[in-house]
Nucleic acid binder design. Structure first.
Lengths: 324, 324
DNA sequence: TTGTAGGCGTTATCAC
DNA sequence: GTGATAACGCCTACAA
């Protein structure tokens, strides 16, 4: 690897001068600059980012900690973050935490040791205090940890209301809800939204709320049980698309036609929703925009720019397809 | 951030000694070691990886360049790679190349500047020469660039033969193929496999091979056109699952029932295949194992261990579900 | 306008 | 056994 010293020698100047033209800082005569640039080109020199990082105490690297990139919700987010980061000169380290606090903590340590400039975090196990102690900018996404930490989320409650109301408007009389995990904030918000619409209905009972874990298989199982015990159910709002697909499977297994016999609506707007047959009606999150925003805010924070506001709640949109 | 110097001072020893206990290298008396360890614990000291990297010229970081993490084929691969890397003490930088040579090249440069220790590459735009010039270990995955570069792939041809033969065995008489892009090696291999089974059939014509691009929408379009112009087609082997789903959509749009009127089989075994209704029969790749192997081989290469062989071709497995 | 030199936090080579 | 000290490649006072 050719170093700044080689360039200096080649151009018969000092390393300081080379550094100056490299960073466009300080005075350099046009002539010397040209000489240096020629040397750089000739030697195909590229500054060593590690040395730079050591000196500057920052690495132009972001950490991205999410539960599991295999969860179809995250790839689009990750892509948006990576795109935006790249555009702004940053690189991103991918970490899968599996919602495991210890694992997340380990990644946090490693990222710190590697001098990452900031972290984007989708987690419900990490607490505010831990984040504060990191002493580097952190942006939370999808899951809110504290109002005092920059956060990019979506209006879950409103989206859930929209979904439930939509089912009602479609003439559905008994609307059930497959909720997400209790320790995930958005799952609780979505459940609240659902309740906001149905809790005053005379038919409503708690048994219309069944517990899912955001995964398909479990959703199929619990939905099937629901359909068996409550054959009157004619509409399901699942707290995410994956579970909605699971519910569709359950409906078929139970001999029900979607959407003729039962309407199913999801939440998230992942690619899967468009790939299912019938295609899934869902509450679509602007996933790419969320990721983009997260990266932008984080980098602003890193670069010390003033942030207008730190809590961003995006709107969500009903996309009607074939399952309702 | 507390540095090795702070620890040294705290333990009243020299930095050299601290370094020795840190790396378990050289002689350190039990007593001093204990002192140092106490100081480390007390100050909660963690060595600075950047400084380490600078000195050692390696960063315990891997680069992962793939076309697009949003393509459902890649998350599982990425996850396996990240898991394995983490277990072995490495971290991974995610890069999306969009099959764009220039973009990939840019990432390569950046990764080099960051001293990554090795790169895992899924690309068909980068040439062998470019890889050689990197002067760091590279392993290719999913797409073969050269027999001389460590590569992890699957027996595409055989898998394609299996798929096509399976359709035949199911009694399908006119089997079409939606192929992948011409510049992707596995697409060509899969097409060859298909041809191996059908090219000698008397009904076979080139018009049974239609061009897809591994994406769903296009597949739906071309499959629909095929079904219209060739209503006799009763089986489709799509070169990947995403296109197989697209073909299912086309079948439904055309008024055909799957699998009653037409059988459809995919390739890859992505999660989507299990989520579709009906569930997709497919040729399943051991995705996680592939990623794991890639990471392991790369790290072996990095750590200078001898590699038994560098070209790994995994077997593929027919998974029969509901679409055939 | 340019060069010298010290330091970022580690590791490794020598002395002692 | 332990401690100075010179790298690693870069940046930035400070001098010249």
């Amino acid at each position: 690897m050719v170093s700044i010293r080689d360039v200096a020698k080649h151009a018969s100047v000092s390393v300081a001068t080379v550094s100056r033209v490299l960073n466009d800082k300080g005075y350099v005569s046009v002539e010397t600059r040209k000489k240096v640039e020629a040397a750089i080109a000739e030697l195909n020199y590229r500054p060593n980012e590690v040395a730079r990082s050591l000196f500057k105490k920052q690495s132009k690297t972001l950490g991205l900690i999410l539960p599991d990139i295999m969860n179809p919700f995250f790839p689009e987010l990750a892509r948006a973050i990576e795109d935006t980061a790249a555009k702004l000169g940053y690189t991103v380290i991918l970490c899968n935490s599996d919602e495991d606090e210890e694992k997340a903590q380990r990644y946090l340590d490693i990222l710190l040791q590697k001098y990452v400039d900031g972290i984007i975090l989708a987690s419900n196990t990490i607490r505010e205090k831990t984040i504060r102690e990191l002493n580097i900018p952190v942006v939370c996404i999808d899951r809110e940890i504290s109002k005092d930490i920059p956060t990019i989320v979506v209006d879950n409650k409103k989206g859930a209301r929209t979904a439930t109301q939509f089912l009602k408007d479609k003439g559905r009389k008994r609307i059930a809800h497959i909720r997400g995990p209790f320790d995930v904030s958005n799952a609780n918000e979505r459940c609240e939204g659902y309740l906001g619409i149905v809790s005053s209905e005379d038919w409503f009972t708690e048994s219309y709320i069944i517990n899912g874990n955001y995964h398909m298989e479990t959703a199929t199982k619990v939905a099937l049980a629901l359909l068996q015990s409550h054959p009157e159910v004619d509409g399901i709002f699942a707290a995410n698309d994956t579970m909605a697909i699971g519910a569709m499977k359950a409906a078929y297994q139970h001999g029900l036609k979607v959407p003729e016999d039962i309407s199913i609506i999801g939440f998230d707007g992942i690619a899967l929703a468009k790939a299912s047959i019938p295609e899934l009606t869902t509450i679509e999150q602007p996933l790419y925009a969320l990721g983009q925003k997260a990266a932008k805010v984080l980098i602003q924070l890193i670069e010390g720019q003033e942030i207008e506001k730190s809590f961003h709640q995006f709107d969500v949109q009903l996309v009607e397809r074939e399952s309702t």
